[in-house]
Design a protein around this nucleic acid. Structure first.
Lengths: 193, 193
DNA sequence: CGCCTGTCTTAACCTGGATTAAGTTTTCCG
DNA sequence: CGGAAAACTTAATCCAGGTTAAGACAGGCG
């Protein structure tokens, strides 16, 4: 599994043996226990994070202490608070591990060096960012035009794997309802009496 | 104003005189009257659109015929149904002009040629896509964790120019309330009696 | 093994925002 | 300029989903 990241990159662009080594050399590896943070509100997001195993969440905490999940990141996903990463200013988001995870990260200065050494990486990250834009646009369709039941259905269709893996309260925090209401909703779906 | 696009690109990357001409040669120019479409549901989004003047909207229409606005695009913004553009399959979104507008567009094949001729454009569009991701992430914070009044306030803070320029019903369709409710809300803000 | 914290459920009550239906004002364009 | 359509307002009623509170059921950790 040492080559998981390179395989992922090579699905989008070609890299020489040498370039692959350069990329790997820039990555810092770390394990992250469940509930431990990669990023907290008020911090500057210094790195991009690639999930090798496990699962993370990117979320905000509102004035009343409720969490709202912007994105999950399972194996093979990149995640960051893009606003904070780009502007290098304090952000308003949290990233933590939902399960014990293994993360590879590149700092912003190191990514910028990689872009100089391996211009093809511009393309790789362009494609990733464009796919993310597509996903966010579609999620706004769901979020603006569907009620809670349909948003749940959309989530199931889009991420069937995550439904099995995630505790219900996190799905609630993603589709934008309270855990109580999601529970009620699921019961109605199973007992349509 | 013939150089509006090149100025925009040169804010992010450097282009030679020659490369600038290549870019301009790939662009198709067109005027678009208010309420006319660049894209409708069921079509494949063939091009990326750059707004030279005027203002466009990207939106979906739900089962009951209500419109939900995913994004506005004022002068100097790119806009497209990213999902449809990337996969070249039929999309579910509409793009039309809110005011008479001037649009420059590049087809997907032509963009791909431009990437070959001018690799620096990969960087330009990577930066744009990353900024879009940052904006969408922040909009989800607003959309998931704020009530209608606060979402309106956030919109005012973020796009003060648009508030003046847009009819109220479009702002309602963006922040996710009915025009009736936005009207009531604004009255309460002005008459806090 | 047992306890303790976190997760899920159930149910009564509440409310932000939707719906419906008029009416009023503005804008557009012929 | 005039008339029709579009945009905005007001108000009564309604409902999806929130809030609060309590109990049931894990399941991880000491």
């Amino acid at each position: 599994m040492e080559d998981f990241l390179l395989e992922h990159i090579r699905r989008h662009i070609t890299l020489t043996e040498e370039e692959g080594k350069t990329v790997l050399a820039a990555m810092r590896r770390r394990k992250l226990k469940k509930k431990h943070f990669l990023l907290q509100e008020g911090e500057v997001n210094q790195s991009s994070f690639f999930v090798v195993s496990g699962i993370l969440r990117l979320y905000s905490v509102d004035a009343n202490g409720f969490e709202h999940i912007i994105q999950f990141a399972a194996e093979g996903w990149w995640i960051s608070d893009m606003q904070s990463l780009l502007t290098q200013t304090a952000g308003n988001l949290y990233i933590d591990a939902i399960e014990d995870s293994e993360i590879w990260q590149v700092s912003k200065p190191d990514i910028d060096l990689l872009y100089q050494k391996i211009p093809a990486l511009e393309r790789y990250f362009r494609l990733l960012a464009e796919n993310a834009v597509a996903a966010y646009q579609q999620r706004f369709v769901s979020s603006l035009s569907q009620n809670a039941k349909d948003r749940y259905a959309s989530f199931c269709r889009l991420y069937p794997g995550l439904i099995l893996q995630l505790p219900q309260k996190h799905i609630a925090a993603y589709i934008g309802v309270t855990p109580e209401f999601l529970s009620k909703m699921l019961n109605q779906l199973n007992n349509p009496s």
